[in-house]
């Protein structure tokens, strides 16, 4: 069965409204894109949409209460919530360096979660 999917292209500020038509996951047509990059964008968005995951992890004995972390690379969009659930169990202890691996190979995606900043030892409550 032929199906149509609508996307807003975010490659440039034009924000083209692009329609992708597929049949059994095979892309038949892309229309509405102002340029080639728009076609590439919706093809990627349809076949394998990925997003960066950024969140925070509680830190023990740190200067601040939470450590900002991110995925090294984008992860599949449909796994974002499950990644969050997995990371909700994680705790780290200061000190941490920017780029340290906080959680390896999350949900077997091959992507690790890394620290976004240096965080030295301290007593956060003193600063509250």
């Amino acid at each position: 069965m032929k199906r149509s999917h609508n996307f807003t292209c975010i490659v440039c500020p034009m924000s083209c409204q692009i329609e992708l038509i597929e049949e059994d996951d095979k892309i038949l047509e892309v229309r509405g894109n102002g340029c080639k990059r728009g076609e590439e964008y919706v093809t990627e968005e349809f076949t394998n949409p990925v997003r960066m995951l950024t969140t925070t992890i509680p830190v023990q004995e740190g200067r601040i209460a939470m450590l900002p972390v991110r995925s090294e690379r984008p992860v599949p969009k449909n796994l974002l919530r499950r990644c969050m659930k997995e990371l909700s169990k994680v705790r780290v202890k200061a000190p941490v360096r920017c780029g340290d691996i906080i959680y390896e190979n999350i949900l077997d995606t091959g992507v690790s979660i890394i620290s976004s900043r240096d965080l030295s030892i301290g007593n956060y409550s003193e600063f509250r």
């Binding site: 960066m52 950024t54 969140t55 991110r70 976004s116 900043r117």
Partner: peptide, 20 residues
């Protein structure tokens, strides 16, 4: 903590804390 910083200056997408 979200990403999207630094695409012009560092030509990569960083989070705010990383950029700082």
């Amino acid at each position: 903590i979200h990403d999207g910083f630094g695409t012009f200056i560092f030509e990569e997408t960083l989070t705010g804390p990383e950029y700082a």
